[in-house]
């Protein structure tokens, strides 16, 4: 059993673009649920819009990558508005069902063969990041995301972080977005604005009776969280192809697990949670098959790789029941209020 190999592959996930994407979307969920108390079960939809908005902006509309990124963000804002105007007056669990259904509608529209020219249907889209990516596309061509990479070709870093210039560029871009995002959210939730949305989380009637426009605050929180979701999707799209099969409800549930792992009502919770989530995922995904191969587990390696998904579910149950404030959260900060 290659213990060192497993540990090294696992460690690389701390700086993985997927981890960063989860952290960004998780930050959005923290704004939604942890601070404003909005039960958004459709984060996958926001992420899909970020990723597809970006890809379609480049491939269909021929926009430069940085403008296309704003198409993705813009799409998520429009989605938040469409979703929020009618639903923010609903009870919490209704909002959960409406958001999950809306995210599914988005996924089905991205999947249907009716719009294959734009969405790529079941194949998804690729080649929008320009040369150096997976597939060359003349439109994206020069001026694509990969082309904006100022790092000279080559391998950098040290194991387990020994990677090529593209991977490092992704990490740096992701790191910057994440750092700015975390600072922004930290500022927000520690401001009078944050006080209001935390108040709404506790009891929106009370906040309304004090003269605050509760609906507007909830909408702002929904949009801000949604934009972070879109940024997460964008991060995924920077790093790889987009495919509607990624943006399924399970993705939302995984995000919730990562969020609750780190602590929902904390700014750094989503970061820590995503890192733990993906490191554990990678570790168990390599460990169990290795154990199975070594004959230490009584099933084949494909089955062994599935165990971790079962564990995610179990972890989610245990977290919610026994440690709703997350591993690092303060017990007083978040008990489920509604």
């Amino acid at each position: 059993m290659d213990v060192l190999g497993i540990l090294s592959s696992t460690a690389s996930f701390i700086l993985d673009p997927t981890t960063m994407a989860y952290a960004l979307a998780g930050l959005g969920l923290a704004v939604h649920f942890g601070f404003a108390g909005l039960l958004n079960m459709g984060m996958a939809g926001f992420m899909a819009l970020g990723a597809y908005g970006y890809a379609i902006g480049i491939l269909t509309f021929g926009l430069p990558w940085y403008l296309a990124a704003f198409v993705g963000i813009g799409a998520s804002i429009v989605f938040a508005l469409i979703l929020g105007i009618p639903t923010l007056r609903l009870r919490g669990d209704y909002l959960a069902i409406v958001t999950i259904a809306a995210a599914e509608i988005i996924r089905l529209f991205l999947l249907t063969s009716a719009f294959v020219d734009v969405t790529g249907s079941a194949d998804g889209l690729s080649g929008f990041n320009g040369p150096g990516g997976t597939v060359t596309n003349p439109i994206a061509g020069a001026g694509g995301f990969n082309d904006s990479n100022p790092i000279p070709d080559g391998e950098y870093g040290f194991p387990p972080f020994l990677d090529d210039e593209r991977t490092w560029y992704l990490r740096i871009v992701g790191g910057i977005i994440l750092a700015v995002g975390v600072y922004f959210v930290w500022r927000l939730v520690n401001s009078p604005w944050g006080r209001v949305i935390k108040g709404i989380r506790e009891d929106e009637e009370a906040v309304r009776s004090l003269g605050k426009n509760v609906f507007a605050y909830k909408m702002q929180a929904l949009i801000i969280g949604g934009v972070f979701g879109a940024l997460g999707g964008l991060m995924l799209a920077f790093s790889t192809n987009v495919n509607s099969g990624v943006y399924v409800t399970s993705l939302t549930f995984f995000l919730w697990t990562a969020l609750l792992l780190g602590g929902a009502a904390t700014v750094f919770g989503p970061l820590v949670g995503s890192a733990i989530f993906w490191v554990l995922q990678a570790f168990l995904g390599l460990l169990f098959p290795a154990l199975a191969k070594a004959g230490l587990l009584p099933f084949d390696s494909i089955q062994a790789a599935q165990i971790r998904f079962i564990l995610i579910g179990v972890a989610l149950v245990l977290l919610v029941v026994f440690r709703p404030q997350g591993i690092f959260g303060n017990k007083k900060e978040l008990t489920f209020v509604k």
Partner: peptide, 26 residues
């Protein structure tokens, strides 16, 4: 018996759903 809140129960059911679903796949 623990008087768990409704939102918590909903998320517990999500976790349970994931666990059982992947158990089937297993």
């Amino acid at each position: 018996k623990r008087n768990t809140g409704l939102v918590q129960l909903m998320i517990v059911s999500i976790g349970l759903s994931l666990a059982i679903r992947y158990l089937y796949q297993f």
